[in-house]
Nucleic acid binder design. Structure first.
Ligand SMILES: [Mn+2]
Ligand SMILES: [Mn+2]
Ligand SMILES: [Zn+2]
Ligand SMILES: [Zn+2]
Lengths: 148, 148
DNA sequence: TTCCTTTTTTAAAATGATTTTCATTTTGAA
DNA sequence: TTCAAAATGAAAATCATTTTAAAAAAGGAA
């Protein structure tokens, strides 16, 4: 955890940004909720618990900065808010998501799975892929069990 | 074109909705811009050219209705507005997109390409896939030619 | 240290997309 | 033709996000 913060600090410095107390508090919240898909407001409320003086605009600015540095990925599941997801350290691409249309749960797929598809797209559409967003909408294992 | 409208009309009727003049005007604009990715405001301005009395709220309501009936797909490319994309008639899944990070162009991939990936996801994650969203971010063929 | 410039933060106001409200109009079945 | 339900338009409301402006913090140079 601490070493992860250290590396993020260096990452910021290498782009001449500072790891201010507010930024650190925000990053800690993200690290403590790796599995979640928090909105800016969600992050704000969590950061506020330990650093009550922080402002919402600062959280927005920090999330924007972390997105720019590819420390987090910004994603939109169609519910009107952007959500922020810590990127696995060293991951070349964003991971995938399973959104359940019954219960709203969001599960993650860390495996790449797209290597072949990307090879085809790069070749056939002559498109140089830098990143991707892949989300499946359907019924999660939990909701399937509930079905009659 | 006319037959496509007829089928959409039947589709609405089968869910006991009417194809009002405003809805028809909206659908026509979408049909005339199949390749584009129009925002609600874009649609509104285009509909207004032929039906100046229409209201923006009606366009929003119509797009929501068409989305619910899976006649259009709502998509978000991260620029703060939702965009609406006519679904290919009879298509089981939404098509894919190539977003150029240089010029902003959005190109389409109509081929499925995900059959194998979906088979793996259904089996390994026990997730019953109903639809998907796949977008690649990268450099389009036009911008590659322009490089250095 | 002290001074100075730059960066960052905060709270409040502004913005912009989307939704809701409500009075009015249109629709289609009886 | 009549009438209840559905749909519309204009305006207001809502909500996420961004901008503004003044104050605070950071950190390098003297
Ligand atoms: Mn995730
Ligand atoms: Mn498209
Ligand atoms: Zn579920
Ligand atoms: Zn391009």
């Amino acid at each position: 955890m601490e070493s992860r913060i250290e590396r993020i600090k260096k990452h910021l410095h290498s782009s001449s940004y500072k790891l201010t107390p507010q930024r650190e508090a925000t990053v800690r919240v993200l690290l403590e909720h790796e599995e979640d898909h928090l909105s800016a407001e969600d992050v704000y409320l969590l950061v506020k618990e330990k650093s009550p003086e922080i402002g919402l605009a600062t959280v927005y600015r920090t999330l924007e900065l972390l997105t720019e540095l590819k420390i987090v990925d910004k994603i939109n599941f169609g519910d009107g808010v952007s959500r922020y997801d810590l990127r696995q350290e060293g991951a070349a691409h964003f991971h995938h998501h399973l959104v359940c249309i019954e219960c709203g749960a969001v599960d993650e797929i860390q495996e790449d799975l797209l290597e072949d598809v990307e090879a085809i797209v790069e070749k056939r559409w002559n498109f140089q892929i830098k990143d991707h967003r892949l989300t499946f909408h359907g019924i999660c294992y939990r909701c399937q069990d509930k079905e009659e």
